[in-house]
């Protein structure tokens, strides 16, 4: 099997937290990302889905080396990035670009759109000829749907709408012609009315430019427009991963089922009964023993309090981390 574009193994990111009292000697940690494994092929889009605080952003930041890993391995195009020297990261960042959640905060208010989009070229000392640089900036703005491009070059971010700002961020990511785009909830801060446009733009770029996309979202409803595969994340770990179709039509993990049950289904015949999860999200500091989902799981049994399940294949490319998967499936069939 050829090496995928991105290969993530056992990635772990723990944030130590300051002890509240001077007597507590035990170092407490936030398990933001806790043993994550997945592959992402060239030109493929993987949606990473999970509720707020499950570690999606932290995972994205570790993939770009913006948060140092606690443990694990990240290979990009066969090159190990975990613990790699700055030069290796620098080169990797030419090919991995990120779009942040908040387009109001992620653009420098004192820089024009032209300067913002030129920045990656400047930082990597690419397209140093004025004419070529200008051409690449215009092309990127154009590809991001900011037309006519020269109309936007001299604008400041505050003169643009949220959607336009996110397009500027996309243009700045595109200008380096990356192979992987990490989009961290790119539409969650935008008006509902313009979300679809931005999602379509990303989907279109993925197809036209063959860019692999790691699309992070807390909203399962936005997934199918872009993604080929879905990874569902719960408390720092992937609990189910598979092709979009498989996961959306035959979700195996009780958490995925709960998430899906409350997504307004476009097709009323497919509507399921709402599964309301009991309890609160356990905090990532004091993880429950056994399966980390068991306190909220509607089908948890005694063994779930002890066994920490690992991802196991349930179909072609479809894997689930739940000890009851096979048993429950045979029951319903």
């Amino acid at each position: 099997m050829p090496e995928p574009l991105l290969r993530v193994r056992g990635v772990r990111k723990l944030f130590p937290i300051k002890a509240a009292g001077w007597r507590t000697h035990a170092q407490r940690v936030v398990h933001a990302v806790d043993d994550v494994n997945f592959d992402l092929g060239a030109g493929e889009a993987l949606a990473l889905v999970g509720e707020s605080g499950c570690g999606k952003s932290t995972l994205a930041l570790t993939l770009l080396g913006l948060e140092p890993l606690t443990a694990g391995s990240i290979r990009f195009e066969g090159q190990e990035l975990a613990g790699a020297p700055p030069e290796v990261w620098r080169l990797a960042r030419r090919h991995i670009q990120m779009i942040f959640q908040d387009p109001y905060e992620s653009l420098n208010p004192l820089m024009t759109v032209g300067e913002i989009v030129a920045e990656p070229l400047q930082v990597h000392k690419l397209a140093t000829a004025t004419e070529e640089r200008r051409r690449r900036i215009m092309a990127a703005l154009d590809d991001a749907g900011l037309k006519p491009a020269q109309h936007f070059m001299r604008r400041f971010p505050h003169e643009l709408s949220g959607g336009q700002r996110q397009r500027v961020a996309i243009a700045a990511a595109l200008v380096l012609e990356p192979r992987l785009l990490v989009a961290d909830e790119p539409v969650s801060m935008l008006d509902v009315s313009i979300r679809a446009e931005i999602l379509n733009l990303l989907a279109d770029l993925k197809v036209r430019r063959q860019i692999a996309v790691l699309f992070i979202t807390h909203d399962l409803g936005t997934v199918s427009a872009i993604a080929d595969r879905i990874a569902v994340m719960y408390l720092g770990r992937i609990v189910e991963i598979g092709a979009v179709n498989d996961v959306l039509t035959t979700p195996q993990h009780p958490y995925t089922q709960a998430l899906l049950s409350v997504v307004p289904a476009p097709n009323p015949r497919l509507r399921r009964q709402h599964i309301i999860l009991q309890g609160e999200t356990p905090d990532p500091v004091n993880l429950p023993a056994g399966c980390r989902f068991h306190p909220r799981c509607p089908v948890a049994i005694a063994r779930c309090h002890q066994v920490d399940p690992v991802l196991q294949a349930v179909g072609a490319g479809h894997a689930v981390a739940c000890i009851r998967t096979t048993e429950l499936r045979t029951n319903t069939l």
Binding site: G53, C54, L190, V192, H218, V263, L277, T281
Partner: peptide, 15 residues
């Protein structure tokens, strides 16, 4: 992060 919030509009109202 204390809420399960798959509702599509739950975070969208902020802008």
């Amino acid at each position: 992060h204390r809420r399960l919030q798959p509702a599509p509009t739950s975070e969208g109202a902020t802008p």
